[in-house]
């Protein structure tokens, strides 16, 4: 029993990170209907920004950790906004396929650019947050895991608040439903889209730092696998659906951890893609997704 709970805790903490990355995919999809494949590399840049912030900020302190988070969020938000502005916006009137291929191009650019700027060899990520192990009736919980839960929960609530209760969030939903009608009420679609990229990228930055705190070896290609899995999580929950992305991430993290703890652990990475194939076969709209029927 205690081993079961231990796996659940580990799974939740991995899943929360997938959830943070999945939100960026799902928000961009919700508004522009394409998959921003460069998102996983923004996650990588977030980790590196945490690494560089660690050169200046104190280690193993809440202040240093939060400082690193804020710095990485800012840099990634700006990066996300610039990517949209210069790579995707000029193609917005074109076909979705063009943008999709461009996204893959941006992804390669960030990975190779990362190799050039940060160096190709793996770096060890500093311990930014204070670290402690707690034991609850035989279950080990690290302060890092608690941090992941708390940070993800706070960010999810904040995001839901923005999307459901604020004017810019309502505008995001309006643009996502019908960009033309949105422009006719005075919404500048470009501003709303930039905002969406900024928020999604900032969340990826948090994901990058938390992920690296748990797996402290970072390199410019580190984003690919977690990014793909987060994409699976977004599809699993229902692409375009924010609570769905969070749910999909957590579900996938738990499934993966259980497979990893079983004798099929060799297949840990394969399981995510098996989930993707199954969901596409049996419930293509995802768990919380709906296929829209428009009333005429």
């Amino acid at each position: 029993m205690s081993e079961f709970l231990q796996q659940v805790i580990n799974g939740l903490s991995l899943g929360a990170i997938y959830a943070l990355i999945a939100l960026g995919y799902t928000m961009v999809y919700g508004i522009l209907r394409f998959i921003n494949f460069a998102h996983s590399d923004v996650f990588m840049v977030g980790a590196f920004m945490g690494f560089y912030a660690g050169k200046i900020l104190p280690h193993e302190s809440m202040l240093g950790g939060i400082g690193a988070l804020v710095f990485a969020m800012l840099v990634c938000a700006i990066l996300g906004i610039l990517i949209e502005r210069f790579a995707y916006r000029p193609l917005r009137e074109g076909s979705k396929l063009t943008v999709l291929i461009t996204a893959i191009g941006v992804s390669l650019l960030l990975e190779s650019g990362g190799q050039y700027l940060f160096g190709a060899d793996p770096k060890s990520f500093p311990m930014m947050f204070p670290s402690k192990e707690f034991s609850l009736g035989g279950i080990a919980i690290s302060s890092n895991q608690i941090l992941v839960f708390v940070a993800t929960a706070v960010l999810l609530v904040a995001l839901q608040f923005i999307v459901l209760k604020t004017k810019i969030g309502t505008a995001m939903r309006a643009v996502s439903f019908n960009p033309q009608a949105a422009s006719l009420v005075g919404i500048n679609n470009d501003v709303v889209i930039s905002f969406t990229f900024g928020i999604g990228s900032a969340l990826a930055a948090v994901g990058g730092i938390l992920y690296s705190s748990n797996y402290p070896s970072i390199d410019p290609y580190m984003g690919i696998l977690p990014g793909l899995k987060a994409f699976v999580a977004a599809v699993l929950g229902g692409i375009g659906n924010i609570p769905g992305a969070a749910m999909g991430g957590i579900l996938l993290g738990v499934i993966e951890t259980f497979v990893n703890g079983s004798r099929y652990s060799t297949y840990t990475d394969a399981i995510a893609f098996t989930v993707l194939i199954l969901i596409l076969l049996f419930k293509p709209a995802g768990i919380l997704g709906k296929l829209h029927v428009e009333k005429v």
Binding site: A174, A181, I187
Partner: peptide
């Protein structure tokens, strides 16, 4: 178009194009 709204022009498009995913109150807020 979004700039013209600021100049006092409003266009109720063909097919209405209400934001079907928002509430009535949110549509008016928009």
């Amino acid at each position: 178009p979004h700039k013209l709204v600021g100049l006092g022009m409003a266009h109720v498009p063909e097919g209405r194009m209400v934001f079907a995913n928002l509430t009535v109150a949110e549509n008016l807020q928009m």
